[in-house]
């Protein structure tokens, strides 16, 4: 009985979380243009989606932006984590505190402050400023996921490699990198997620008609086109399948739940 209550409550929360998503998916197959009215099943919006240059441009911007921002912030963040790991405690502590500042600040303050910076230095708001702002909020998360791996690493293996005649670079490549690779990958993936999902910081730091999906939705809030429903349904389906595949693969690796 108690178990049943718990299950029921959990499913209730899941329904709550999925209600709007289901709505989007259902209405993406709706033949009528107005939301709220059902005009029969059709794949019309999926067809029109690929002819809507505005949405396609936004999609390309979102993806390119996410990949670039994630790649650059992963490189900078990983190198910084390696260097911080080796530097003195006082320097490290103060720099790590500064690193976490953008994470503690609300998005709106980060967004506004970057906009002030770009206009102060007469940088035209557009793709470059968008990219810079995304790199800015991604780096802390990369450092945050690489740092623990560095501390969890066995330092003597690295020293043994040096004793056995490996150069610093070789030792890093063969010993350190494989050890911290899971951290780097999760930092990269987290950056992509954050970049794709971000609205507030992008909103303040874009211009010249450069729009990612979030900004496109916001600027057309009085009439979000049904094509957007179709696009988000496709994206959601892809993500869900990806997550489930990762889930199944992990399960094969170990029966223990590690999250």
């Amino acid at each position: 009985m108690k178990k049943l209550c718990k299950k029921a409550y959990f499913y209730f929360i899941l329904i709550f979380l999925y209600a709007p998503i289901l709505t989007l998916v259902v209405f993406s197959f709706n033949d009528a243009k107005s939301r709220g009215k059902w005009g029969g099943f059709s794949l019309r919006w999926y067809k029109e989606l690929f002819h809507n240059s505005q949405i396609m441009d936004a999609l390309v911007t979102t993806i390119v932006l996410a990949l670039l921002a994630a790649f650059i912030s992963t490189v900078i963040g990983t190198v910084a984590a390696l260097a911080l790991h080796k530097s003195g405690t006082r320097l490290r502590k103060s720099m790590i505190n500064l690193t976490y500042l953008p994470m503690l600040n609300s998005d709106i303050v980060t967004g506004v402050s970057l906009m002030l910076l770009f206009t102060f230095f007469h940088l035209d708001l557009g793709f470059v400023t968008l990219l810079l702002s995304h790199i800015t909020f991604c780096i802390p998360y990369v450092i945050l996921s690489v740092m623990p791996k560095l501390y969890g690493m066995n330092q003597s293996v690295f020293e043994a490699a040096l004793d056995l005649g490996a150069s610093q670079l070789q030792a890093y490549k063969k010993i350190v990198l494989p050890d911290i690779l899971p951290g780097i990958i999760s930092g990269f993936l987290m950056s992509i997620t954050l970049s794709i999902d971000d609205f507030v910081i992008s909103f303040f730091n874009t211009g010249n008609g450069v729009k990612n999906i979030s900004i496109l939705v916001y600027t057309s809030k009085t009439g979000v086109k049904p094509e957007n429903y179709a696009l988000s349904s496709i994206m959601f389906g892809a993500v869900l399948i990806l997550l489930l595949i990762i889930n199944i693969k992990e399960k094969k690796k170990s029966t223990e739940v590690n999250y």
């Binding site: 709007p20 998503i21 997620t193 794709i196 999902d197 979030s214 988000s232 994206m235 997550l243 999250y259």
Partner: peptide
């Protein structure tokens, strides 16, 4: 309570991958 815990964690995370503006917008429809 549940045996397939990882799956449930995935199910709870997945909505966050949907664009947050579109999710909020969908509530308007409802």
């Amino acid at each position: 309570t549940f045996r397939k815990k990882t799956l449930l964690v995935v199910l709870l995370i997945a909505p966050m991958w949907m664009n947050f503006l579109l999710r909020t917008y969908a509530w308007l429809t409802l």
